[in-house]
Protein backbone atom coordinates (compact mmCIF):
# COMPACT_ATOMS: atom_id res chain seq x y z
CA UNK A 1 0.00 0.00 0.00
CA UNK A 2 1.39 3.39 -0.92
CA UNK A 3 2.14 5.85 1.86
CA UNK A 4 -0.32 8.39 0.46
CA UNK A 5 -3.12 5.86 0.39
CA UNK A 6 -2.32 4.79 3.93
CA UNK A 7 -2.35 8.38 5.15
CA UNK A 8 -5.65 9.00 3.41
CA UNK A 9 -7.14 5.97 5.10
CA UNK A 10 -5.89 7.09 8.51
CA UNK A 11 -7.16 10.62 8.02
CA UNK A 12 -10.52 9.50 6.74
CA UNK A 13 -10.87 7.06 9.63
CA UNK A 14 -10.07 9.79 12.13
CA UNK A 15 -12.33 12.39 10.58
CA UNK A 16 -15.23 10.27 9.37
CA UNK A 17 -18.50 11.37 10.88
CA UNK A 18 -20.64 8.60 12.25
CA UNK A 19 -23.65 7.97 10.08
CA UNK A 20 -26.87 9.18 11.69
CA UNK A 21 -28.49 6.39 13.61
CA UNK A 22 -31.65 5.00 12.06
CA UNK A 23 -34.83 6.01 13.84
CA UNK A 24 -35.33 2.50 15.11
CA UNK A 25 -32.32 2.78 17.38
CA UNK A 26 -31.92 6.49 18.08
CA UNK A 27 -31.72 7.32 21.76
CA UNK A 28 -32.89 10.51 23.43
CA UNK A 29 -29.43 11.20 24.82
CA UNK A 30 -27.89 11.09 21.39
CA UNK A 31 -26.28 7.69 21.82
CA UNK A 32 -26.30 6.00 18.44
CA UNK A 33 -27.85 2.68 19.37
CA UNK A 34 -28.87 0.72 22.42
CA UNK A 35 -27.22 -2.58 23.26
CA UNK A 36 -30.08 -4.46 21.77
CA UNK A 37 -29.97 -2.81 18.38
CA UNK A 38 -27.58 -2.06 15.58
CA UNK A 39 -27.47 0.54 12.84
CA UNK A 40 -28.65 -0.42 9.37
CA UNK A 41 -26.28 -2.54 7.42
CA UNK A 42 -25.02 -1.55 4.01
CA UNK A 43 -27.54 0.59 2.14
CA UNK A 44 -29.54 -1.52 -0.23
CA UNK A 45 -29.71 -4.52 2.05
CA UNK A 46 -33.09 -5.43 3.48
CA UNK A 47 -33.91 -3.45 6.58
CA UNK A 48 -34.67 -5.14 9.85
CA UNK A 49 -38.07 -6.80 9.87
CA UNK A 50 -38.42 -6.81 6.13
CA UNK A 51 -38.71 -10.39 4.94
CA UNK A 52 -35.56 -11.76 3.33
CA UNK A 53 -35.59 -13.64 0.05
CA UNK A 54 -36.83 -16.76 1.77
CA UNK A 55 -39.73 -14.85 3.32
CA UNK A 56 -38.37 -14.99 6.86
CA UNK A 57 -38.61 -11.77 8.84
CA UNK A 58 -35.35 -10.27 9.96
CA UNK A 59 -34.81 -10.14 13.69
CA UNK A 60 -36.16 -7.03 15.34
CA UNK A 61 -33.44 -4.46 16.06
CA UNK A 62 -34.87 -3.70 19.47
CA UNK A 63 -34.62 -7.22 20.76
CA UNK A 64 -31.62 -9.54 21.10
CA UNK A 65 -31.73 -12.57 18.87
CA UNK A 66 -33.58 -15.42 20.48
CA UNK A 67 -34.04 -13.52 23.71
CA UNK A 68 -37.29 -13.43 25.59
CA UNK A 69 -40.00 -11.12 24.26
CA UNK A 70 -40.77 -8.11 26.42
CA UNK A 71 -44.41 -8.48 25.46
CA UNK A 72 -46.51 -10.49 27.79
CA UNK A 73 -49.27 -12.59 26.33
CA UNK A 74 -51.74 -10.16 27.90
CA UNK A 75 -50.10 -7.23 26.12
CA UNK A 76 -49.96 -9.02 22.81
CA UNK A 77 -53.58 -9.98 23.20
CA UNK A 78 -54.62 -6.43 24.10
CA UNK A 79 -52.70 -5.03 21.14
CA UNK A 80 -54.35 -7.47 18.76
CA UNK A 81 -57.74 -6.49 20.19
CA UNK A 82 -56.90 -2.83 19.63
CA UNK A 83 -55.86 -3.52 16.06
CA UNK A 84 -59.24 -5.18 15.43
CA UNK A 85 -61.18 -2.31 16.97
CA UNK A 86 -63.77 -0.62 14.74
CA UNK A 87 -62.49 2.65 16.24
CA UNK A 88 -58.87 1.98 15.26
CA UNK A 89 -58.42 5.00 12.97
CA UNK A 90 -60.30 7.31 15.31
CA UNK A 91 -58.16 6.32 18.29
CA UNK A 92 -54.97 6.76 16.28
CA UNK A 93 -56.14 10.25 15.27
CA UNK A 94 -57.06 11.24 18.82
CA UNK A 95 -53.69 10.12 20.11
CA UNK A 96 -51.76 11.96 17.38
CA UNK A 97 -53.64 15.22 17.92
CA UNK A 98 -54.19 15.25 21.66
CA UNK A 99 -52.39 12.46 23.51
CA UNK A 100 -54.15 11.60 26.74
CA UNK A 101 -52.62 9.16 29.18
CA UNK A 102 -51.57 8.93 32.77
CA UNK A 103 -48.04 9.97 33.60
CA UNK A 104 -45.66 12.13 31.68
CA UNK A 105 -44.58 12.48 29.03
CA UNK A 106 -47.70 11.43 27.20
CA UNK A 107 -46.36 10.77 23.72
CA UNK A 108 -48.30 9.52 20.72
CA UNK A 109 -47.15 5.90 21.24
CA UNK A 110 -47.82 6.08 24.97
CA UNK A 111 -51.34 7.33 24.31
CA UNK A 112 -51.99 4.52 21.83
CA UNK A 113 -50.67 1.94 24.28
CA UNK A 114 -52.95 3.38 26.95
CA UNK A 115 -55.90 3.25 24.57
CA UNK A 116 -55.01 -0.36 23.78
CA UNK A 117 -54.57 -1.16 27.49
CA UNK A 118 -51.05 -2.37 26.84
CA UNK A 119 -48.74 -1.85 29.79
CA UNK A 120 -45.34 -2.81 28.35
CA UNK A 121 -44.30 -3.93 24.89
CA UNK A 122 -43.08 -0.46 23.88
CA UNK A 123 -40.52 -1.61 21.31
CA UNK A 124 -42.95 -3.87 19.50
CA UNK A 125 -45.87 -1.45 19.54
CA UNK A 126 -43.52 1.33 18.40
CA UNK A 127 -42.42 -0.80 15.48
CA UNK A 128 -45.99 -1.26 14.31
CA UNK A 129 -46.90 2.39 14.98
CA UNK A 130 -43.96 3.64 12.96
CA UNK A 131 -45.08 1.37 10.14
CA UNK A 132 -48.66 2.68 10.45
CA UNK A 133 -47.48 6.31 10.23
CA UNK A 134 -44.92 5.82 7.50
CA UNK A 135 -46.43 3.16 5.25
CA UNK A 136 -50.15 3.23 6.06
CA UNK A 137 -50.51 6.93 6.93
CA UNK A 138 -53.15 7.56 4.26
CA UNK A 139 -54.95 4.20 4.63
CA UNK A 140 -55.24 4.82 8.37
CA UNK A 141 -56.41 8.43 8.09
CA UNK A 142 -58.96 9.55 10.66
CA UNK A 143 -61.73 9.62 8.07
CA UNK A 144 -60.95 6.13 6.73
CA UNK A 145 -62.82 2.97 7.86
CA UNK A 146 -60.75 0.90 10.26
CA UNK A 147 -61.09 -2.25 8.12
CA UNK A 148 -59.26 -0.48 5.27
CA UNK A 149 -56.54 0.59 7.69
CA UNK A 150 -56.17 -3.04 8.82
CA UNK A 151 -55.87 -4.15 5.20
CA UNK A 152 -52.87 -1.92 4.86
CA UNK A 153 -51.38 -3.12 8.17
CA UNK A 154 -51.78 -6.74 7.10
CA UNK A 155 -50.50 -6.25 3.58
CA UNK A 156 -47.64 -3.86 4.28
CA UNK A 157 -45.94 -5.95 6.92
CA UNK A 158 -46.92 -3.77 9.91
CA UNK A 159 -48.65 -6.65 11.68
CA UNK A 160 -45.68 -8.89 10.87
CA UNK A 161 -43.39 -6.38 12.54
CA UNK A 162 -45.30 -6.61 15.79
CA UNK A 163 -45.66 -10.37 15.60
CA UNK A 164 -41.98 -10.92 14.90
CA UNK A 165 -41.02 -8.59 17.73
CA UNK A 166 -43.47 -9.99 20.29
CA UNK A 167 -43.18 -13.58 19.10
CA UNK A 168 -46.92 -13.79 18.91
CA UNK A 169 -49.42 -14.50 16.21
CA UNK A 170 -53.05 -13.54 16.08
CA UNK A 171 -55.78 -13.66 13.53
CA UNK A 172 -56.04 -9.96 12.73
CA UNK A 173 -55.41 -10.62 9.06
CA UNK A 174 -57.37 -13.84 8.68
CA UNK A 175 -60.59 -12.20 7.57
CA UNK A 176 -59.07 -9.84 5.03
CA UNK A 177 -60.71 -9.78 1.64
CA UNK A 178 -58.84 -8.51 -1.36
CA UNK A 179 -62.02 -7.65 -3.23
CA UNK A 180 -62.70 -4.54 -1.18
CA UNK A 181 -59.25 -4.30 0.40
CA UNK A 182 -60.58 -4.55 3.93
CA UNK A 183 -60.16 -6.69 7.03
CA UNK A 184 -63.44 -6.84 8.96
CA UNK A 185 -63.26 -6.77 12.77
CA UNK A 186 -64.15 -10.39 13.42
CA UNK A 187 -64.36 -11.58 16.98
CA UNK A 188 -61.46 -13.63 18.17
CA UNK A 189 -61.14 -15.43 21.45
CA UNK A 190 -58.15 -14.45 23.55
CA UNK A 191 -56.87 -17.99 23.31
CA UNK A 192 -56.35 -17.52 19.61
CA UNK A 193 -53.51 -15.13 20.29
CA UNK A 194 -50.54 -17.41 20.47
CA UNK A 195 -47.41 -16.17 22.14
CA UNK A 196 -44.36 -18.08 21.04
CA UNK A 197 -41.84 -18.57 23.77
CA UNK A 198 -39.46 -20.91 22.04
CA UNK A 199 -36.71 -19.27 19.96
Amino acid sequence: MRLGTLLLLVVSTLTACPAPAPPSCSEPDGAPCSDASLPDATPGQPRPNEPDDAGHPWPDPARPDGGPSECSSEDAEAWARFRRSPRLTELLARCSVAPLCEGAPCTFPACVRAAARVTGCAACTNAELACISDVCGASCAANTPSENCRWCLCNSGCVNLFEACSRSVDGSCDACTAANESCPPHSLSPAAVLVLTAP
Binding site: S96, N143, T144
Partner: peptide
Protein backbone atom coordinates in the same frame (compact mmCIF):
# COMPACT_ATOMS: atom_id res chain seq x y z
CA UNK B 1 -38.35 13.58 19.05
CA UNK B 2 -40.91 15.14 16.68
CA UNK B 3 -42.77 12.80 14.41
CA UNK B 4 -46.11 12.60 12.68
CA UNK B 5 -48.92 10.16 13.28
CA UNK B 6 -51.12 8.65 10.58
CA UNK B 7 -53.08 11.13 8.48
CA UNK B 8 -56.02 13.02 9.92
CA UNK B 9 -57.29 13.43 6.41
CA UNK B 10 -56.14 11.84 3.16
Amino acid sequence: TPTTGPALVA
